[in-house]
Design a protein around this nucleic acid. Structure first.
Lengths: 125, 125
DNA sequence: CTAATACATGAGCACATGTTCACATAAAGA
DNA sequence: TCTTTATGTGAACATGTGCTCATGTATTAG
């Protein structure tokens, strides 16, 4: 009986057992790592990132966002739902109008941090 | 003749023209915002994030990574290519073995930053 | 040279994702 | 009440993504 990926994983006993054994206990538990990648995944869409950036300047209603971004109200609304479920934005209702704003200011710092990273290497395009 | 999304965007002249006009000039140019969301998108996958975290502890070869993550060498190799193209990792060849390492230490800081964000709100799940 | 091995890569496939479209809902005005 | 308008949402659809599988390439050993 062969182990799961016997024909995929390297044939040697294990190339650097010492390294693997050193690294393994230092890995963040996947219960934590998974929400983290989920968080980055949410930020990894241009539409959502732009919405977040706009909301960092000012609270805005769905209509304003749609106009600002030249996108359909429906598309914006769908994305706002994603952002809501990820707890990145909150909203307040005033009659028919729903005003969205950032849940906190971490996202802005995160964006600045990312921009720094990008600017420090051979710039993408 | 109607404008592009006349039946999608709100019917009012424009709900908060003042806000939109205030926000628009403060938005980061999409030439910059786009690479940023691209950067987050790369981090937004559990496999890639785990690879990066492992590489932060120690330089490792493809084989080690595959073993550590209980994934096929092919899958790891494909993801390493994505990370390479995004300039997040670099590699060095020694005979048959290819050692990968982080391109710089920004990623670790970014991960820590993200973890902070997650820990500060009602924890996911 | 031949075989073995570490890694890379293209094709294929199942599944996730973002948008549009149509329609539902809720609030305000006539 | 009936209409209008701001927003939410399910279904459909096209596209993107991550993995497997098969195979290619480079390097080393024999």
């Amino acid at each position: 009986m062969m182990s799961v990926n016997d024909n995929q994983i390297c044939k040697t006993v294990l190339i650097h057992e010492d390294i693997v054994n050193k690294v393994r206990p230092l890995l963040t538990a996947s219960e934590i790592l998974s929400p983290l990648s989920e968080f980055f995944r949410i930020l990894g869409d241009p539409t959502r990132l732009k919405i977040l950036q706009a909301l960092h300047v000012s609270e805005m209603c769905v209509c304003d966002l749609a106009f600002l971004m030249k996108m359909s109200q429906s598309a914006i609304s769908h994305q706002l739902r994603v952002l809501r479920q990820a707890n990145l934005v909150k909203y307040r209702k005033e009659g028919k109008i729903v005003y969205y704003s950032l849940h906190d200011n971490h996202i802005k710092s995160m964006m600045d941090f990312g921009l720094e990273h990008i600017n420090e290497k051979q710039i993408i395009r």
